Amino acid sequence: MVRIGDLVAAHGSPPHSPPPPMVEGSAWYRVAGIAVSRREHKASCGHATTGRPWYRLSE
């Protein structure tokens, strides 16, 4: 599970340095008051998360 502000795994070519944080999250699903990111939400670099097929969060 990734929340707004969490750093994402290294990606891109060359990889982003430092790792970018998530900036988009669910409007209604929160953990400890922080919005949870789901598939297609974006990090500050503009790349979208890929998600996992076994975990779905739909709005």
Rank of each mutant, 00 (worst) to 15 (best):
M1R: 06
M1Y: 07
M1H: 08
V2R: 14
V2P: 09
V2D: 11
R3S: 04
R3A: 13
I4H: 00
I4C: 07
G5S: 12
G5A: 00
D6E: 05
D6A: 03
L7A: 14
L7W: 01
V8E: 05
V8F: 12
V8A: 15
V8C: 08
A9V: 15
G12Y: 00
G12R: 01
S13T: 09
S13C: 02
P14H: 07
P14S: 09
P15S: 01
P15A: 08
P15L: 01
H16Y: 12
H16S: 04
S17C: 09
P18T: 11
P19D: 07
P20I: 14
P20E: 06
P20Q: 07
P21G: 15
P21N: 05
P21F: 13
P21I: 14
V23W: 06
E24R: 08
E24W: 10
G25W: 02
G25M: 09
G25Y: 10
G25R: 06
G25Q: 12
S26K: 05
A27R: 12
W28S: 15
W28K: 10
Y29I: 10
Y29R: 03
R30F: 09
V31A: 11
V31Y: 09
A32C: 10
A32Y: 07
G33Y: 11
G33M: 01
G33H: 06
G33F: 01
I34T: 07
A35K: 10
A35D: 08
V36D: 03
V36E: 04
S37F: 00
S37D: 00
S37I: 00
R38E: 02
R38W: 04
R38Q: 03
R38P: 04
R39T: 11
H41I: 01
H41F: 11
K42H: 14
K42C: 09
K42T: 10
A43E: 07
A43N: 13
S44K: 13
S44E: 09
S44V: 05
C45S: 07
C45R: 08
C45I: 10
G46V: 09
H47Y: 14
A48V: 13
T49N: 06
T49R: 10
T50P: 02
T50G: 12
T50H: 11
T50M: 13
T50D: 12
G51T: 03
G51I: 00
G51C: 03
R52E: 07
R52I: 08
P53C: 01
P53H: 02
W54E: 15
W54Y: 11
Y55E: 06
Y55S: 04
Y55D: 07
Y55T: 00
R56T: 06
R56H: 05
L57D: 11
L57N: 13
S58D: 10
S58I: 14
S58W: 06
S58A: 05
E59L: 05
